[in-house]
Design a protein around this nucleic acid. Structure first.
Lengths: 154, 154
DNA sequence: TTCGTTGCAAATATTTTGCAAGTTC
DNA sequence: GAACTTGCAAAATATTTGCAACGAA
C-alpha cells in the first residue's frame, strides 16, 4: 500500500517515517479534494495528535518536490494539495472554475483547450469573467546554465 | 490625465485622493510590469514618503475591485498588479511562463489556445513541465441567488 | 551509529485592521 | 459638516526555521 511512497522516498534519498505515511494516507483518502495544509493537519489530529503542523508543512513541501502531489493556489490564502497518481499523464492538467462570489471551486473534467470559454459557459453554466493560463517549466537561460554546470562537473 | 481615475472612482462612490492618484501614476508609468505592493510602496517613498504602506494595500484592493488593475498571483509570495487600459478586451487574457528554477516570468504576447504547448516550447524556447488554466467568473448558484435577491428588492 | 526527521516554540513575512486625525466633496 | 480616507502601530495569518531530542536504516 505504502510501498509506492517508500520507493519514491528512497529513490530521492529520503526516509520513510510514520508522519510521512500518515500524510500520504490522508491524501489518498481524499484523492479528489484539494486539502489545505491545515485541513490535513486537522484530519491527522484525530489519528495521531502528536504530529506537529510544522511536520505537515515540511512533508507537503517534500511531496511536491518529489512529484507526489500537485500544489494548487486558488488564491484563497491557502496552499492546497492533491495527490498525483503514478501513471497518469493527464494529471498535469488542472482546470478549475473559481467563483468570484462564493469562492467555490469547480473542476473541469474535460481538457478543453479550444473554443473553451463558450463550452464551459454552457456546460457548467458558469459565467466566465476572466481566465488565466499558467505554464510552469524551465526557461531557456536556466537550461543553458544547466548545460554549463554539467560541463564543469565532468 | 487622471480624469479617467476620478471618473472611475466617482462612478463607484469613492473619493479622489492624492494617495490614489499617486498609485495610479506609478502603475501607469509601469504599464507592462508586474509590480508588487511593496515595489509600488518603495517607488512612492521617493515621491511622497508620507504615504503609508497600509494605504497602498487598501488602494490596490480598491483598484482591483473597480477593475482598474489586474492582480497577478505568481506564487512568489507577493500580490502583483498590472494596470488595465479602459478599452482593451484583450487585457483579460494573461498568459505567462513561470520558470520553476529562477522564478522568471515571461509574458506570452499571442493568444495561444490551441496546440499551445508545442508552439510555446518552440517560440519561447521554454520547456513546459506543467500548465494550469484558471477561469474566474460567477457560478450558476450565485447567479440564481442574484436573481432571487433582485426579486426581493423589488 | 549516523544522519535525516520531528516537535515545539519562536521568528518571518505579508497583509489586514482599529482608531484618531485629516481630507474630500 | 458628513462621510470617507489616511497613517500609524498593533494584530492577524500562513508559513518557515533553530535546535535539541528522536528514530530510521
Amino acid at each position: 500500500m505504502a510501498e509506492y511512497l517508500t520507493d519514491l522516498l528512497e529513490k530521492n534519498g529520503y526516509k520513510t517515517t510514520i508522519q510521512r505515511k500518515t500524510v500520504y494516507e490522508v491524501l489518498c483518502e481524499n484523492k479528489d479534494k484539494h486539502l489545505s495544509t491545515e485541513d490535513i493537519y486537522n484530519i491527522i489530529q484525530n489519528v495521531n495528535p502528536k504530529i506537529g503542523i510544522a511536520t505537515i508543512y515540511r512533508t507537503l513541501l517534500l511531496f511536491e518536490d518529489i512529484g507526489l502531489v500537485y500544489r494548487h493556489n486558488f488564491d484563497d490564502g491557502f496552499q492546497r494539495y492533491e495527490i498525483l497518481s503514478p501513471h497518469s499523464s493527464e494529471v498535469h492538467q488542472h482546470h478549475h472554475l473559481l467563483c468570484k462570489q462564493c469562492g467555490k471551486i469547480i473542476e473541469v473534467k474535460e481538457d478543453l483547450m479550444n473554443s473553451l470559454e463558450e463550452i464551459i459557459e454552457k456546460q457548467y453554466n458558469f459565467e466566465i469573467l476572466n481566465h488565466e493560463v499558467k505554464f510552469t517549466g524551465i526557461c531557456a537561460q536556466c537550461r543553458d546554465k544547466e548545460k554549463e554546470d554539467g560541463r564543469k562537473e565532468t
